[in-house]
Design a protein around this nucleic acid. Structure first.
Length: 176
DNA sequence: TTAATGATGGGCT
DNA sequence: GCCCATCATTAAA
């Protein structure tokens, strides 16, 4: 699923504002994976991971950032894909405003950055990503892209797993 | 260009 | 009380 989500679009409609980005970097967090929030059972925070697939899991971290995930396993399993970077497509002016920088490569090139650029927070936790206002959707025509596998970032366990994926050469990936 | 560091607060043992 | 799926800033090379 982490590979599948590359090239899909994250779209957010909030009143007049339309924001959209193409997913260019993801990480997989699986059952029996010590780096996965759900690996030690259900807690108040990770409850959405055990809920319906296709819903969001947004969590608050490091005292000031949010990270956005899509739940990818059947109910009760506890797996998700972290969206780490987007290529800004629509609503770039609004993203610039929310991020406080005009540099395009710095708008959504990181899990905390893209949540800031889209204004995502606790209110967007556990919501259905097929019905809006926050949606993941495919393009009309699937364009093939070269995918690079790499180790996941910012974790201290299972650091050897190659469960991070990004569009090769894309300028909006958080780290190459 | 890369490496080190401080900010900042919720989650969980 | 320690850990943390991060980021911006500063310092060093």
């Amino acid at each position: 699923m982490a590979r599948e989500l590359l090239g899909k679009f994250l779209i957010y409609k909030d009143g007049e504002t339309l924001l959209a980005g193409r997913i260019v970097e993801t990480e997989a967090y699986l059952r029996d994976d010590p780096a996965c929030h759900a690996s030690r059972g259900m807690t108040p925070r990770n409850t959405p991971m055990f809920g319906e697939p296709g819903h969001s899991y947004v969590y608050f971290t490091y005292g000031m950032y949010h990270c956005f995930n899509a739940v990818t396993a059947e109910k009760g399993v506890g797996e998700a894909v972290l969206v780490r970077a987007l290529e800004p497509i629509e609503g770039i002016h609004k993203m610039i405003e929310l991020r406080g920088t005009e540099k395009l490569e710095n708008l959504t090139s990181g899990p905390g950055k893209l949540c800031m650029a889209f204004g995502l927070n606790r209110r967007h936790n556990g919501i259905d990503l097929t019905t809006g206002p926050l949606v993941i959707a495919a393009d009309h025509e699937e364009s093939a892209c070269q995918i690079t596998e790499a180790t996941r970032i910012g974790i201290s366990q299972a650091t050897e797993k190659l469960w991070r994926y990004y569009v090769s050469g894309n300028r909006f990936v958080s780290r190459k």
